[in-house]
Nucleic acid binder design. Structure first.
Length: 189
DNA sequence: AGATGGATTTTC
DNA sequence: AAAATCCATCTC
């Protein structure tokens, strides 16, 4: 199955819009002949230095530099020493914002079981994504997002508070997590 | 130079 | 409830 590759322009828009519209799109990772893909079923938005849950709230550092890159840039970081999280930078260069990919429905090259991609750390392991991919662009040949023509209606999308960022007190009031209502592959069911 | 603490997952 | 495990960032 082949789809239409999303351009940088798709990501150069408000982060909440990108987070919503990524649902139902396909994330594809290619390494040599090894192609792995999955439908995006859960995302979270992280927006700007004022967002306490966003890594950029600490300012521009070596680690967060990627968040300030061009839209469409992939931001991968290591968490808890064991897991990687994959984000795609949004909006515009020098404004730190990104969408965290939290769950996939396996499509190609991944076991079709919710267990392997239902969570940001797990899906990176399933896709073979590591911090070495930090800074690559979705316009490169290693990783991209494509539209396979699946329609996602407004009623298919559930909004909720983000996971694991309770310390950012305001986060409770910002429903910046989005997932497909009917997906069995969402984390924290 | 040493301490600290995660946008997680699994297991006891 | 707590371990597993590493590195960017903070503190001295």
């Amino acid at each position: 199955m082949k789809g239409k590759k999303l351009t940088v322009r798709f990501f150069a828009r408000p982060t909440l819009t990108v987070a919503r519209e990524l649902l139902g799109k396909y994330l594809v990772v290619k390494r040599g002949r090894d192609v792995r893909a999955g439908k995006i079923v859960e995302t979270e938005a992280y927006i700007g230095e004022d967002d306490k849950a966003c890594h950029a709230s600490k300012g521009r550092t070596k680690r967060t530099e990627t968040l300030y890159a061009k839209p469409g840039t992939v931001y991968v970081y290591l968490i808890y020493g064991m897991y990687h999280c994959l984000n795609i930078v949004t909006e515009k260069k020098d404004f730190p914002s990104a969408v965290l990919i939290r769950a996939l429905e396996p499509a190609e090259g991944i076991a079709a079981h919710p267990r392997v991609t239902s969570g940001p750390g797990k899906l990176c392991r399933a896709l073979g994504v590591t911090r070495h991919m930090n800074g690559v662009s979705v316009s490169d040949a290693a990783l991209w997002v494509e539209d396979r023509g699946e329609r996602v209606g407004k009623g298919d999308i559930v909004e909720s508070a983000r996971i694991g960022v309770e310390y950012a007190k305001q986060s409770r009031h910002y429903p910046w997590r989005f997932y497909l209502r009917n997906s069995a592959f969402v984390s924290r069911r």
